[in-house]
Design a protein around this nucleic acid. Structure first.
Length: 106
DNA sequence: TTGTTGACTCTGA
DNA sequence: CTCAGAGCCAACA
């Protein structure tokens, strides 16, 4: 019943628009989706495994990976991004100045 | 219906 | 950048 599908689907769609080797933040998607960053994170948390959504390319504003209670999930996401060509610094952070993706429209 | 929690972000110091 | 506080919306009990 009337689940927030439109909103979730919008978030997923935006996340899917992020090309490989690039990362975006929750706030960016949230703003384009019309909702705060928290909702975006919640949508990603509700995102089922095996979905065609590159949720790994979605990180926080600091360029750091934020995952839920999944201890190794963080390592997994980092490895996936690394496989796409994203580099991490010693602090495990991504250089948003180079890998940060900005949507073409606004 | 209210209250709490949550893969967050912004502003000010 | 870090610390602290406030704001925003959605899902769950």
């Amino acid at each position: 019943m009337n689940p927030p599908s439109p909103l979730y689907q919008r978030i997923y769609e935006l996340a899917r628009q992020v090309p490989a080797g690039r990362v975006t933040t929750y706030g960016r998607i949230g703003k384009l989706a019309g909702c705060p960053a928290r909702t975006v994170g919640f949508a990603m948390a509700a995102l089922p495994a095996g979905s065609s959504v590159p949720w790994q390319r979605v990180i926080n504003r600091l360029g750091e990976i934020s995952t839920r209670a999944d201890g190794d999930g963080e390592l997994v996401q980092r490895q996936l991004l690394k496989a796409e060509g994203v580099r991490f610094d010693v602090a495990g952070r991504v250089d948003l100045a180079k890998f940060g993706w900005d949507f073409p429209e606004r």
